[in-house]
Design a protein around this nucleic acid. Structure first.
Lengths: 155, 155
DNA sequence: ATGCACCCTGTGGCAACTAGAGGGTCAAGG
DNA sequence: CCTTGACCCTCTAGTTGCCACAGGGTGCAT
């Protein structure tokens, strides 16, 4: 499908430029087991091929879509099993979408709360400041605001 | 205005329960300079008073509204200068709101992209999977998707 | 031969905590 | 008096996803 191998081996810097990744990040992906360790030149430089370019591209695009590295790892494993059903891929993507939507909802609540608080500021002195007042102590923080770890009151 | 000091000193655990914070988190706030180090009992236990309770409450509420610790630090300093204008407080809150709104926008773009990608999945085998395909290499990752570090192409 | 850009490994740092090891303290019960 | 168990102490390391050195080695051009 894709012919990139014609370029010959890439140094880590060239790969970095080609994918818009920092060199350290590439090395870190290798260390984290996401990008396979490439062969080395006689001078011990990493020599990447088209396969690495594609794989790193996959990783970067997935990350840009907000998948965690753990999810990317799963997706990479799946992407290699080309003759198996892709229901699992669909599941991961949908779970991630749900996550994104939950975050949006949380941030919206936050935004409303902030706007409410800001709207009350009369720009007087701090002792009359409604923002400071709104932030002040009113009992255990209601988890309704954060949305994380909601529901359980156990300590 | 508020009378909480009547309860006498609190142990760190009691303070934790009262504010819905983990004990380790409280110690960490102290270490980070957000919560002043309280006096100790003869057995070297931290003994908190109403002032600490209020201050920790302020911190938790600010955090719940998504302020970073750095912002909380600024807000705390400001909250203590009760006779100065609160324009600065307003500025911090507005900046934070702008941040929240930017994050929402980014996540929305992400969500659209994900829905698009997911919508193409025919649940066949992975070799035909449109999700995997969509994630595959198409050149340097467009920063339009992420919204962070947009604009500059310098390396 | 010498400069410079690039590469190597290894370590430490960022936010904002969380979890654990390995101990000390305190109040109650037997 | 002694033990039990819940609590507290400090210190360290881990989490996620990288970024930024330090202190070297390599490759190529001049």
């Amino acid at each position: 499908m894709t012919r990139v191998d014609t370029d010959g081996p890439l140094t880590i810097g060239a790969l970095a430029r080609a994918t818009g990744t920092k060199v350290e990040t590439i090395r870190w992906y290798e260390q984290a087991g996401l990008l396979p360790a490439p062969p080395r030149t006689k001078g011990n430089y990493r020599a990447y091929g088209g396969e690495h370019l594609r794989r790193l591209g996959f990783i970067r695009k997935s990350r840009a879509l907000g998948f965690t590295l753990e999810e990317v790892r799963e997706l990479l494993v799946l992407a290699d099993q080309r003759d198996r059903p892709c229901a699992m891929v669909d599941r991961i993507a949908r779970a991630h979408l749900a996550d994104v939507e939950r975050k949006i909802a949380d941030l919206r609540v936050l935004g409303h709360e902030l706007r409410r608080v800001i709207g009350q500021c009369r720009l007087g002195t701090i002792s009359e400041c409604r923002i400071i007042e709104a932030l002040s102590w009113t009992g255990p923080v209601s988890s309704a605001v954060v949305g994380e770890d909601a529901g359980s009151g156990e300590v």
